[in-house]
Design a protein around this nucleic acid. Structure first.
Ligand SMILES: NC(=O)c1ccc[n+]([C@@H]2O[C@H](COP(=O)([O-])OP(=O)(O)OC[C@H]3O[C@@H](n4cnc5c(N)ncnc54)[C@H](O)[C@@H]3O)[C@@H](O)[C@H]2O)c1
Ligand SMILES: NC(=O)c1ccc[n+]([C@@H]2O[C@H](COP(=O)([O-])OP(=O)(O)OC[C@H]3O[C@@H](n4cnc5c(N)ncnc54)[C@H](O)[C@@H]3O)[C@@H](O)[C@H]2O)c1
Lengths: 213, 213
DNA sequence: ACTTAATTGGGAAAAATTTCACAGATAGCA
DNA sequence: TGCTATCTGTGAAATTTTTCCCAATTAAGT
């Protein structure tokens, strides 16, 4: 309702596709490519040229009729749309098998995400250090968020404790959660959750495998 | 075009939601709940009651007017729709940080997925054993798939080698790929790919964080 | 047996998303 | 300069997805 900005609402799928464009544009720039057409970008992302143009058109005009898009200019534009002009700080909750994989994934930092802190409840893990990040006691997360206004949390704890932690995080100012636990989190309207649900993905594959036969 | 089965095409999103229903129904059954209404199931999955009923209606009539759904009956029905009446065999390609997390995740087996084999190219990893699964030389994957007709692969290799491995896997009969590498895979029409793209998810959160301000 | 309340299934309407189609812009070349 | 190729941006149309709505069904209470 209080849509502060003047823009119309953009769907999550549109934003997901922008992320794909950004990835390809980054590669193209590294490869020294100067210009690209919507149909070539569509080819790279397995979409259609009109889809590409329509997606971009929600945010402005970035191309030149007859010529296409300048790679580095479009890349910057998409980066800005996605809010990647600044480094994006995140915290990690749960340094188990999955959490540790996330912590030691160098591409996050390269892509402008910075894991500022990691928290766990297991005393055997607290104090360990990986990739410059020390794992802290989950009890300290409240205190941490009072000082460091991180807005995004990666949630990699077991399902049974995910909701409780979520409530704490939201209370401490977390506004976005990337949730790996197989549970539908309850959050206030202003908090955004993305779910990474591997069982769901496998079941989708299972369904299509079955129906293809 | 050659739509073998008589059914109309069901969207991926519908199937994703069925997976959510299945998860909740499984919990409800474990908790001893006998019956549930579409609106209660919607509440649990953060959807609407009409969405739940419409999704199910594509596959038959599972409820009783005025009463709702019998939990165990609906659970079985959804399980069958998703092809989970049989154990689903998968292989893992790439036993790095992420691959090892997948390998040691017990919930997959509990949910009817079975990792039959794991493959890597790194000689330091080949021969190691985790959760009863020995990591094999990737060179052996072709041979393995000749004997074991596994149809689903979890692909957790670096992006630069993902396409090449994919071509091999598809040649050897793999029909579904759960891809963790940040790349759009090229596959023939009959092969289904699901992408788990964490950077994409984070960028979606970044966008919504920015626009919420 | 009758009434009331709850609930499904599915056609119809509404909303959202994708695709179509084309005017207008640009570059290359004769 | 004029012609042709190409390509964008965007309303309009088509398609897909979601929501609305209600007749029909069931259970429970009186
Ligand atoms: N590992 C996988 O491949 C995989 C796949 C799909 C989904 N998941 C999901 O991801 C989540 C994490 O999986 P995992 O394999 O890393 O599990 P894990 O058990 O290895 O790690 C969970 C970690 O969370 C910590 N923890 C528990 N309660 C906590 C709390 N209240 N506060 C802070 N930390 C807490 C534990 O000490 C542990 O270190 C789970 O919800 C799991 O279902 C994992
Ligand atoms: N770790 C994360 O948190 C994370 C997050 C997002 C995406 N990803 C993606 O998931 C994939 C795996 O990530 P990771 O962190 O496990 O990387 P990793 O480097 O730890 O592991 C990759 C593994 O693949 C193996 N490999 C390389 N080429 C191979 C080949 N041709 N055949 C078989 N095995 C091969 C390597 O030996 C290594 O063991 C990557 O594409 C990465 O971009 C990882």
């Amino acid at each position: 309702m209080p849509q502060t900005s003047s823009k119309k609402k953009i769907s999550r799928n549109t934003i997901s596709r922008l992320s794909l464009y950004l990835r390809e544009l980054t590669r193209l720039e590294q490869d020294g490519k100067k210009a690209i057409s919507s149909s070539d970008l569509a080819e790279l992302t397995d979409l259609t040229d009109t889809q590409v143009r329509k997606d971009l058109s929600h945010f402005g005009q970035f191309g030149i009729s007859g010529t296409g898009y300048e790679v580095s200019k479009l890349k910057e534009a998409v980066r800005n749309i996605l809010g990647k002009d600044k480094v994006l700080d995140v915290i990690l909750i749960g340094a188990g098998n999955l959490g540790m994989a996330l912590l030691s994934y160098p591409a996050f930092r390269e892509q402008g995400f910075s894991i500022k802190a990691a928290f766990d409840i297991d005393t055997r893990k607290i104090g360990n250090k990986t990739s410059e990040i020390e794992i802290c006691d989950i009890e300290k997360v409240q205190e941490f968020l009072k000082k460091d206004k991180v807005k995004i949390a990666l949630l990699a704890v077991p399902a049974f404790s995910a909701q409780k932690i979520t409530d704490t995080l939201v209370n401490c100012g977390i506004r976005c959660i990337l949730n790996f636990a197989p549970i539908v989190l309850r959050v206030p309207d202003e908090v955004v959750v993305s779910n990474v649900d591997l069982s769901k993905e496998l079941e989708v594959l299972s369904y299509f495998l079955r129906t293809a036969e």
